[in-house]
Design a protein around this nucleic acid. Sequence first.
DNA 1: CAAGAGATCATCT
DNA 2: GATGATCTCTTGA
Length: 202
Amino acid sequence: MANYCNKKLLKKDYMLDPFKVATDILLGAYLCTNVDNKLCVGKITEVEVYIGCEDKACHAYKNKTPRNSIMFEEGGVSYVYFVYGMYNMFNIVTNEKDVANAILVRSVEPVDGIDIMMQRRGLKNIKNLTTGPGKLCQAFGIDGKLHGADLINSNEIWICPKDNDYEVLSGKRIGIDYAEEYKDMPWRFVIKDNKFISKKIS
DNA sequence: CAAGAGATCATCT
DNA sequence: GATGATCTCTTGA
């Protein structure tokens, strides 16, 4: 069993351009949570990039509000928000202060703590366990209490660096049809040939 | 397998 | 007061 708890991404890994963080650093890295003293680990297989003020799909489009203000902080903190009255979404803030970039983690491949994930999700199968942003938050115990968590220093949530390189595919982001000229931007990224993703690249 | 409806509430207008 | 970076279940081919 590899030491997913000992190695963590560093501040410098999060302070970069979000496309570089998404494709070169996050895909293939391991999302780790230790919530209620239960360790869960998953390899990140699918992410989406949201680039702030100019991006009509981004929560930080146009103006800063109480909800999105965390995106304007320096990279390396979590942005967790609640949608559709029932699901949490987990994002990773990147880049310099006052640049409102974030990366939505959409799917992971379960690696460790799979029994815990199945218990939290009420499932008895690995299928559908973590292949969607709301699903993986439920499986990993991520909710509003981890909003703003410091991914470099927290002992509840962190990212362990990848141990392999992967071929990456890109496609349109999902669920943002309202975003006009930004709705077709190919800013969703997945690991090629990994089956733990929410939707195939078309 | 694909398509559609319903669930349910914080957030911003 | 409307809506959403979603999910699950149901229906039907």
